[in-house]
């Protein structure tokens, strides 16, 4: 069993299932309305290129923290939407919110490159309160996120290359 990246972050009896990157990719592919939520850590280690690759597969991107600047600098803003993580969670929980494209909410949220602890709280909020209709959350991050439904495992920064290969497999399966 994987441990949370912040070891004390065990909130309750239900924890995320560890999933292989192929399964994570397929979950995104099979969703009707997926959304990739990225944070400031995608500006490290060129992870933004992986986010852009996912965006180019047609998955809309919610750019939280100041990650938007990275997309602007790389000239990719096609389906990238500026938002705050807190505001986004509040919107996802709301039946009144019609998504970034004004056509409806999202049924699957994938997180990548957010600060561990705020992303964890984001996920646990959605787990408990984005329930009507249900919104499924997965982590394709370098952290195991117990509050997600499915999550990748913890991958140390010293193994960033492995992490990027894992992301490539996710992307291949979208």
């Amino acid at each position: 069993m994987e441990i949370p990246f912040d070891i004390g972050n065990i909130s309750g009896p239900e924890n995320a299932r560890v999933a292989q990157p192929e399964a994570l990719g397929r979950a995104i592919k099979n969703a009707k309305r997926p959304l990739l939520v990225v944070g400031s850590e995608i500006l490290d280690d060129d992870l933004i290129e992986k986010a852009i690759a996912i965006g180019k597969k047609g998955i809309p991107i919610a750019a939280t923290a100041h990650s938007m600047k990275g997309f602007v600098d790389r000239g990719y803003t096609e389906n990238v939407h500026l938002t705050g993580l807190h505001e986004l969670a509040n919107n996802i929980e709301s039946r009144d919110w019609m998504g970034f494209d004004k056509t409806g909410g999202y049924d699957l949220i994938a997180v990548l490159g957010g600060i561990y602890y705020s992303t964890s709280q984001f996920l646990i909020a959605l787990k408990n309160f984005a329930t009507d209709p249900i919104v499924r959350c997965i982590s394709i991050d370098r952290y195991y996120h117990p509050a997600a439904r499915m999550s990748s495992v913890n991958i140390s920064r010293k193994h960033t290359d492995e992490f990027k290969k894992m992301l490539d497999k996710v992307i291949e399966n979208i």
Binding site: G12, E14, N90
Partner: peptide, 23 residues
């Protein structure tokens, strides 16, 4: 509106518990 992100999904305040409040 209050927005909640539970830091703990259980309650252990009384001897009825621990109670699982998820779902």
């Amino acid at each position: 509106k209050p927005f909640y992100a539970p830091y703990c999904e259980m309650c252990c305040f009384c001897t009825f518990g621990k109670c699982d409040l998820t779902g």
